[in-house]
């Protein structure tokens, strides 16, 4: 049985169930890299060009940890998921970056998922991918259908139960996906934590921010916990026509949760992330208009958990004191 490796980074957190189920139905075995750790991070950093953003470096580290453990590595080029909305260039070019900087990598499976190019292009890409594993088209069709149902169920599970990707993946696939945060804690403050799911769910990168916020007595809401249709609509309400595949996760969720009158908003972005720099301005603006306390945090390779904790504590204290003075708008590096 051939083994397909899936790096536990970037779009993994949003699409793991559909990918895994698809390959398993085609008769392949799926191997996943372990949660991010120091070795993975350093390995990734050592190979990419310095200005590359942290999440992509982490991704490369995960891919490296899969070398020798599988026959293929699955790195789709997730270009566009809908009309005129595109992903970040680095996610579109991910298989190309990986192939270039990790020449020792096993065969990379890189379908180009570009819904802007229409349905037939999509089917063609999937067909090309699946035909490596089976020539039985009925089996392929079934794999697609089952996988897609899995994906919808996964998304719905997160919004219904108000849990993070990590927690949902733990429920579905068990121990290798444990999360340090609790489900539905009963804190006395509600904080929206906005960021790419691959940042808010990577506990090594984000220094277990959710866990710490919960310990400080806050309920944390992330974009996964809102229904997809709700954050899509909220993004359109906020900026009109959307351009980016992840606008709903940041601007959309930001709009949605400010309308819900959360007690505070924290944005968590990675240093060197192009799109975030544009989107966070919107969220900040919204926060200012609605007088919602706002804290922008940015992570980089050298960030330490200690500095972040101090900032979080100060932020929550400020909210508890019902201070209306807003913190400085420049991102704090922690």
């Amino acid at each position: 049985m051939s083994k397909v490796g899936i790096p536990r980074a970037l779009l993994y957190y949003q699409y793991y169930p559909v990918w895994r189920s698809f390959f398993e139905h085609l008769g392949a075995e799926v191997v996943t890299s372990p949660p991010t750790n120091r070795t993975i991070l350093t390995a990734g950093i050592s190979r990419a060009v310095a200005d590359t953003c942290l999440p992509v470096k982490v991704f490369l580290g995960h891919t490296m940890s899969l070398i020798g453990k599988c026959d293929y590595i699955f790195i789709p080029s997730m270009t566009s998921f809908g009309k005129k909305t595109y992903n970040c260039s680095k996610i579109i070019g991910l298989p190309n970056i990986t192939r270039a900087v990790l020449p020792e990598c096993p065969i990379i499976l890189d379908p180009n998922i570009d819904l802007e190019k229409g349905r037939w292009y999509f089917y063609h890409q999937i067909y090309k991918l699946a035909s490596r594993f089976t020539s039985n088209s009925v089996k392929m069709k079934k794999a697609i259908d089952v996988a897609w149902q899995k994906q919808l169920a996964y998304r719905k599970k997160m919004s219904d139960e108000k849990i993070t990707s990590n927690q949902a993946l733990f429920d579905l696939y068990g121990s290798s996906h444990s999360a340090s945060s609790q489900k539905n804690p009963q804190g006395n403050l509600t904080i929206a934590l906005l960021g790419h799911p691959y940042i808010t769910n990577d506990e090594y990168l984000n220094h277990r921010i959710i866990y710490h916020l919960q310990n400080m007595g806050a309920n944390v809401l992330t974009s996964e916990m809102a229904p997809q249709t709700a954050i899509d609509a909220a993004a359109t309400r906020a900026v009109g026509e959307t351009h980016w595949a992840f606008e709903p996760d940041i601007i959309g969720a930001g709009q949605y949760y400010t309308e819900m009158k959360v007690d505070g908003i924290i944005t968590l972005s990675a240093f060197g992330c192009g799109p975030d720099s544009m989107m966070i301005v919107w969220v900040e603006h919204r926060a200012k208009e609605t007088k919602t306390p706002f804290l922008p945090l940015s992570l980089d390779e050298h960030s330490s958990g200690g500095a972040m904790l101090t900032r979080l504590e100060a932020f929550l204290d400020m909210i508890k004191r019902k201070g209306t003075k807003l913190p400085t708008p420049t991102p704090a590096y922690c």
């Binding site: 953003c53 970040c88 680095k90 190309n96 270039a100 060197g272 992330c273 799109p275």
Partner: peptide, 11 residues
């Protein structure tokens, strides 16, 4: 921080 050119730089 230009995303497309970072892809190019890596490639």
């Amino acid at each position: 921080t230009c995303m497309p050119e970072i892809v190019a730089q890596n490639v």
